[in-house]
Design a protein around this nucleic acid. Structure first.
Ligand code: FES
Ligand code: FES
Lengths: 167, 167
DNA sequence: CCTAATAGGACTAAAATGGTCCTGAATGCA
DNA sequence: TGCATTCAGGACCATTTTAGTCCTATTAGG
């Protein structure tokens, strides 16, 4: 599909940084864990300080952690762990990861008329994001075996007009 | 989590090559489309010949297309389009993409005892793969608005012993 | 044999990733 | 006020991946 799309962010990706972020968030989510400095978090998690710091910055831009600067500053969860989802984490750390490459800027791909494949992958991606949005930090950490409904990929894919995906 | 894992394949990834593969498979899946040479497919899809060729090779290694060589050779779908799933395509093109990095070779990550986060991401990944396995080529192409059940991420995540995911 | 076609892999250029570091700005405290 | 602490924001670099090209077998027809 791509062929001549300009530089666009890749699709769904879960990489090391996201991993780190989850570990750090896990620490912050621990009971009674108030404020922690980047240094503390780095030591607690075993992640290198500069890297931990970078991750933390991403998380703060993404609005997942709140920060106080200056002496006695540090980081806290911006919202309760149950209100932080897997997509939130991924988006915060890896940037607003795009959909299919030629789908973001329609009209760029020369094959667009003859092919509906790109659109399909995009739907898949959206479905995955939706499902990932139902996975909360509490679940990633281990507590709370709650079960929220996830999007059904196949259904989303086969969506004819009128067929709705249950939210 | 990673910290000192040796070079392992990344997690779930859907990139350009996969895109190309889908377009090519779509052509091969067209009614009455028997054998096509790499050159034909390249022209039909607008993908560069060398690249198309590379993709085709991957698909053949993955067992998604059957090839005949020599004069009058070419490629065909190895199985009906309805029996080819999205994971099949991804795996074939991008190699057997791994799970979480530190989960593949257990014991490598120093944080393993204190953290169960990695395991969670792994479950997420497995769930996504499962869901992707229910998405068939026919659906990616556009026909067949069939709906097979997809795995429920949140349920998989919260799996305590005894809680089963509906297949 | 000679040609058409795939198989396999070496190789390259470009981009993303992971990681480090520096400079600046806020906050609290003596 | 001055100073130490701690985050914000980037610039920057090394390494790995990716996408893409090309070259050399190998296989099959005619
Ligand atoms: S090739 Fe870009 S839309 Fe299908
Ligand atoms: S850090 Fe490797 S298992 Fe959690």
């Amino acid at each position: 599909m791509v062929l001549n799309a300009e530089r666009l962010p890749p699709m769904l990706r879960i990489s090391k940084l996201t991993d780190y972020a989850t570990v750090i968030l896990a620490r912050l989510a621990e009971e009674g864990a108030g404020q922690h400095t980047a240094v503390e978090l780095a030591e607690l998690t075993g992640i290198g300080l500069p890297t931990a710091s970078k991750v933390l910055k991403g998380l703060q831009r993404g609005g997942l952690v709140a920060s106080t600067r200056g002496a006695r500053g540090g980081y806290t969860l911006a919202r309760p762990a149950a209100a932080i989802s897997a997509v939130d984490i991924i988006d915060a750390v890896e940037g607003p990861l795009g959909l299919t490459e030629c789908a973001s800027h329609p009209g760029q791909c020369g094959l667009e008329p003859s092919c509906r494949v790109g659109r399909s992958w995009q739907r898949v991606n959206v479905a995955i994001r939706r499902a990932l949005g139902d996975v909360k930090l509490t679940q990633l950490i281990g507590r709370e075996a709650n079960a929220a409904p996830a999007a059904d990929l196949a259904v989303v894919l086969g969506s004819r007009p009128g067929l709705r995906v249950r939210s």
